[in-house]
Simulated assay, not measured.
Amino acid sequence: MDSEKYILVRHYCEKTNIPHSFIDSLWEYGLIDCKPIETEVYLFTDDIPHIEKLNRLHHELGINLEGIDAITHMMQRMQQMEKELKNLRNRLRIYE
C-alpha cells in the first residue's frame, strides 16, 4: 500500500475532531470512497478537501446526508456544464 495516498480514518478523525461515525455515514451513503484493509479503513488523501466541505455542510449548516447528496450531485453537474461551456466557447473562437 502506498502510504502517501491513504490516511487511516481513525487518525484523521482524531486530528480533525470529525466524528468517525460521520465518515462511516458518508462512506455508506456513497459520498466518499474508503479502502478497507484488514481491520482498518483508509481514506484517499485526495478526498480530504471534499470530506471537509461535506463536514461543513453537515455540521455548520445542518444539512442532512440526503441534502448533501443532492448538493454534491448538483455541483458536479454544474462543473460538467461549465467545462462544456468553456469547450464550446473555445470552438466558437475558431470562427471569429
Rank of each mutant, 00 (worst) to 15 (best):
Q80I: 00
H20V: 10
D47P: 02
M81V: 07
G62S: 12
R10I: 05
K86G: 03
R10T: 02
P19F: 06
Y42D: 00
L54I: 11
C34D: 06
T16V: 01
Y42T: 01
D24S: 08
L54V: 00
K35T: 10
L92R: 12
N64R: 05
I94R: 14
C13T: 02
P36Y: 08
E14D: 09
Q80K: 15
T16L: 04
L8N: 07
D24C: 02
R77Y: 08
E14I: 07
E40V: 02
N87K: 05
N64A: 12
H58K: 02
G30Y: 12
V9D: 00
Y6G: 01
L43M: 06
E14W: 04
P49V: 14
V41W: 07
S21T: 09
S3L: 10
N17W: 03
P36C: 06
E52P: 05
S21H: 04
P49W: 08
V9L: 04
N17S: 12
G67Y: 13
C34G: 11
S3A: 13
C13K: 00
L88A: 09
I23K: 02
I51S: 02
H11C: 05
H50S: 12
M74I: 11
L65P: 04
L43G: 01
V9Q: 01
N90H: 12
G62H: 10
H50Q: 13
